[in-house]
Design a protein around this nucleic acid. Structure first.
Lengths: 351, 351
DNA sequence: CTGAAAGCGCTTACAG
DNA sequence: CTGAAAGCGCTTACAG
């Protein structure tokens, strides 16, 4: 049989109000009765009825969502938003609501203005993609002073005070890319690693991917004869990409694969298609629309997914767990590193 | 502002009881008032408060779970159970509870006895892994006559009357295996496809995987010189596996890969380890403990995951959506076809 | 420091 | 066919 506050109250010879006070640490209870009630609760194994609690306390929870505005080259950011909305659909009757504070990924000013708005509006919690590392760090501190709980998605801020981080292990994803790239390579082959829009995107994340990739080949001595060329490409326009790749192909004859450390892999795919260079294994990140066509027609061999929709979904669900269910949640939550090919593509990302 | 039954009642000049009656099609309402109330509901956009509803109607839902008993060689079936329990942890306060009716995967009698028990206990819904196709078909019909909603997981029954199916697209998973196998193959190479415990496991599922695999190589003409040997292995003891593989290796000199169409791939991995046959690409299914060691040490190259835990989780969540939220749910829900390697293994299945 | 009462939005008998 | 009342398990003022 389910035990209710009323049962506890009767056992302790007090009213339900008093039990409620100790249950919520609201004070105004004498130490002896508090002890007594706590003891009874321990014995009897009380589990509060979340539905009744939510219904009675007409409290609602505002969640601020601070992620780059999904537009233009940022198709990627639509996915977390979709996940957030899906989560909301499952728990909105608990009084959860979100407020969007999108910012321009390439404009620090827009981010700072979003931060100001959030601090002004004082939400209960915040889902943050900390694209601007330094500014995010300040912002997180300010939020914590207001008691705003923070869930970080996509990339992390070392040492900051957040509830949990949900995202990918960048290094491991690079390692995986190395493994996928390695299959069938021969002595004397060359590979190219390209960091596109290097100074714009999140530095740490990208660097971690590259390190993971390199690490794979360093750890397997059978690949020590491999030549790996690395390129940083701040500009991602067609001319810059063309020049970079053109010079690579002129200089190195045995290029067998290219690893692009972010979602801009479609730019390289475009080049390879135009210059009809088949037989080059191409690996990159993210199931954004621009990449899909190339995955389908075989120019891109593998895409590694960060599961952005799942990140958004989990961000909200973790807040629900924490705020409503009062459960412990894990601080670091790495997403599975999904490998997407033409053959399994259709089963990802449609939800 | 949220609209309540009370608001509708006031607008219609009736009591909340009457509104409730039309809301639930309980009859005993005159046609004119029914029409009027329905009209108001349409105009006003009423959304019932699920929490209040659940709290007031102290209805609970019993979900029967009929899947093979997770034990011995069936480690696989622990995962759906884990997923089911995770889902329950998120929604148990809605009065959801499960009753397990595990059966012996290799004993039809135990399955039939579980079916009888279920029909006797009359749960609200059923999560079924239809391992025994013919018997499952009868059982499903009997359940439907009792109004028991059915969610199928793992494998499907053509044409049966179920609420939804959650599982993998077997053909596509075989196609993917073909793709993973194909990398780096040369003229004159050989591959082996092994169906283990063929007559025991679900026939359709296994056949679909093999067909998908074959189809990959048929569709890519560059592989027309490939020799593909197929073997059915009803018995999976070491002797039988050894004889089968031994004769293959004796007869065909250029075996470069082996595709095992189910989770028994560890038996082949064991053989390859013992007989020190490196350089053979080995692909199979499912992240069961017996397979993991071989994936970690590189004997197994790829495992394809059916996401069994996710299947269990989704089964319960779909029932929740259907029974409590009264939402439409999708009849066929194919799981993503996850590719697991040594490098991304740690991010799968730990939840 | 404590209790009694009203209320959250709905459902469930029951009376008429 | 319809309505008034009690109740689900909790929270929230309010009175003392």
């Amino acid at each position: 049989m389910k035990v209710r506050i009323k049962d506890i109250a009767e056992k302790a010879n007090v009213s339900v109000g008093t039990v409620d006070r100790v249950l919520h640490n609201r004070g105004e209870v004498s130490e002896p009765t508090r002890k007594k009630i706590l003891e009874i609760i321990g014995d009897i194994g009380y589990q509060p009825d979340i539905l009744a609690r939510t219904l009675a306390s007409r409290r609602s929870y505002r969640i601020a969502v601070a992620i780059p505005r999904p537009a233009g080259e940022n198709e990627f950011w639509q996915a977390p938003l979709k996940g957030i909305e899906r989560a909301l659909g499952e728990i909105n009757f608990f009084g959860f609501g979100i407020d969007n504070y999108h910012f321009d990924q390439y404009d620090i000013g827009s981010f700072e203005s979003a931060c100001r708005d959030i601090l002004h509006d004082r939400p209960d919690a915040l889902v943050l993609a900390p694209v601007f590392q330094k500014e995010s760090r300040y912002f997180i501190t300010a939020c914590r002073e207001q008691g705003i709980r923070i869930v970080l998605i996509n990339s992390r801020i070392e040492g900051a005070d957040y509830l949990c981080y949900i995202g990918q292990d960048a290094f491991k994803s690079g390692l995986l890319a190395g493994r996928l790239m390695s299959c069938g390579l021969l002595h004397g082959d060359s590979l190219v690693v390209i960091n596109m829009a290097y100074d714009k995107d999140n530095y740490q994340h990208i660097a971690g991917r590259e390190q993971g990739f390199m690490s794979y080949f360093n750890e397997h001595q059978e690949y020590h004869t491999l030549k790996i060329i690395r390129k940083d490409l701040p500009d991602t326009d067609n001319r810059a990409v063309g020049e970079c790749l053109g010079s690579c192909f002129r200089k190195y004859k045995n290029i067998k694969g290219i690893f692009v450390t972010n979602s801009r892999v479609y730019k390289v795919a475009g080049y390879l298609s135009e210059h009809t260079r088949p037989g080059i294994r191409l690996i990159g990140y993210d199931l954004i629309p621009s990449n899909l066509a190339y995955l389908r027609n075989g120019v891109i061999d593998y895409l590694i997914s960060q599961k952005p929709e799942e990140q958004g979904y989990q961000a909200i669900m973790n807040l629900f767990s924490h705020l409503i269910l009062k459960r412990e949640i894990q601080k670091i939550q790495h997403m599975p590193i999904d490998i997407i090919t033409r053959e399994n593509l259709e089963y990802y990302g449609q939800r």
